[in-house]
Design a protein around this nucleic acid. Structure first.
Lengths: 180, 180
DNA sequence: TATTGTTATACTCTATAACTATA
DNA sequence: TATAGTTATAGAGTATAACAATA
């Protein structure tokens, strides 16, 4: 107790496992559900959601990438898939010629309308129906706070773009200190 | 207000986004960290952890699959990768000739010892250092509870093994009801 | 020089279903 | 017949770095 070991407490281990597994189980189910109902993967659907959120204004590719856990080349690939299906349109940004604005099409909006209810009710059944409203608020507040702090860290899209000698993300986490 | 729509509340949406993104961001960072430090993906490392937990007794393949979000063929593939690297050994179960016991090797144990500290401190820095102990306990209790309930559902390894006409996982979640 | 986005290649992983063997 | 595990194949996705264009 109180030793400066890098070891994790049993509580923390359980917390991490709970977060990890709960999120994965629900994401897996949502992925299956979306493939069946609208023919998109969860990743694609989430991308379409982010683009759709912006309405007719569209959204810069980098902004979409930063809102999600996708690399830029990964986003290019996935948006390409969405474009092939006619769900999204890309055009150069008027103000910054380097940027590309992704915009949802009417067909994309239709797909969103078709897919959201199933997605939502799945998440509701798997997650929210098992929580009291008070618990929901608690978890939300706490996790939302963590998320905001995480988002302030170096952006994924900027990640490792310059030199090769910079350490990734968090500090000394990759030092394999050997263990007792 | 009180309408029977399948729509999700703003609170719920935020909760889901927080869970989804937080978990993904940390998992992504952990994956990078583990690739660098021990040359395994997060998925492989988690599998090795589960096998290692069982010590010299080893663990049935199906039990490992059920503990994680992996299909059986996926597990076969990943355990194959671990076996190639000499981190794991497979042998038929003595009591049930159909089953296979996966057992960690000394090299596997070494790798776990080398990788865990970095993994742990990354998760600690990204997640737990941002939470009070009280918050940690709250989130753990709530999510752990959800997780247990989810685990009581039909197992992933049994999933869709028999006929083809059965609905997947949760109930009527794939009905795209059309929306206003 | 830094940023935005795309591309090309190779590689890893997953999905699906068929298959063997034991219970 | 149901369960445990493997395999084969095809396709989807990712990582990396190089690339072009604009700021």
């Amino acid at each position: 107790m109180g030793t400066p070991e890098p070891s994790i407490s049993a509580d923390e281990m359980r917390a991490w496992a709970a977060l990890f597994e709960t999120s994965n189980i629900v994401q897996y189910a949502a992925d299956r559900n979306l493939r069946d109902s609208v023919g998109l993967t969860l990743a694609q659907f989430e991308i379409l959601l982010r683009i759709g959120e912006a309405g007719t204004d569209g959204r810069r590719m980098t902004d979409v990438a930063d809102a999600l856990t996708v690399s830029r080349s990964g986003l290019t690939y996935q948006v390409g898939q969405l474009e092939k299906k006619g769900l999204v349109r890309r055009e150069p940004a008027p103000d910054d010629e380097r940027s590309v604005i992704a915009q949802i099409t009417p067909a994309g909006l239709d797909l969103l309308r078709a897919g959201v209810p199933g997605y939502v009710s799945l998440v509701r059944e798997m997650l929210f129906d098992r929580l009291s409203h008070a618990d929901l608020m608690t978890v939300t507040e706490i996790l939302d706070d963590v998320r905001k702090q995480l988002k302030e860290q170096p952006k994924r899209s900027t990640f490792r773009r310059a030199s090769r000698k910079t350490a990734p993300a968090v500090s000394g986490a990759s030092g394999a200190d050997a263990v007792g």
